[in-house]
Amino acid sequence: MSNEQPVTLFIQCIVDTHYPAVAEAMVRVLRRLGISLTCPGDQTCCGQPAFNSGYRRQARTAAQHFIEVFENSEIIVCPSGSCVNMVRHHYAELFQNDSQWLARARNLARRTYEFSEYLVDVLRVEALGARFDGRVTYHDSCHLLRGIGVRQQPRTLLQHVSGMDFIEMRDSDYCCGFGGTFSVKYPDISDAMVTDKAKNIMATKADAVVGCDMGCLMNIRGKLSRLGSDIKVMHLAQILAC
């Protein structure tokens, strides 16, 4: 691999605290490509939960912390489209009245990538020599798809996994009903949405559902578990690390 630019890991808080295995898989994939990695130990949360709930002052605090932690990194890669969307698009909104922070936020946004986007669009890697025996379907996370425009990259990577039978589910681009605090504040609506999602996944008879955002996947996994389904819920990195 010619691209030797070191990568700084931006670990989504849900991955950090609930799904460390996802981060580990990402690390394995990137190391396999010969990329040297750093991971700032001070990182916490990009601020999205506060921002989406309307608490902009608090979100700004989180964003400032994030900028301070990552400012000196050359390339920042995150296993979540939603967090990248926050840094790339919403930081500018948070600092619209503060030109200094705005400049720092913009500078950082340019160097922040979602995992699949980084592999396909930056490194130009499609085949990672991964193998997964079984049928797999893919869920499009909203902010990944409509926020930062990533639709094809994860599919391209999946199609290069050997042994895999890839199948599209119905309404793969419909929201799973997670929505951050929405899922707790409006449980009836959220549950109705994730029930549809789970049904669409189960209808594919897939062995695993894959996504690029553990927020959605935690929601989907929670529903499948409650329904007694044993379909695996995996982050793309976990499949690629196989």
Binding site: A23, Q43, R221
Partner: peptide, 28 residues
Amino acid sequence: PPVSGWTQGRDLRPLAKESFIQRWRKGF
């Protein structure tokens, strides 16, 4: 409460024993 809504129709993956950052610090 106030997070009981989550488990109304879903289960939740518990917090990992160790966060990824903790593992990284230990030299993952």
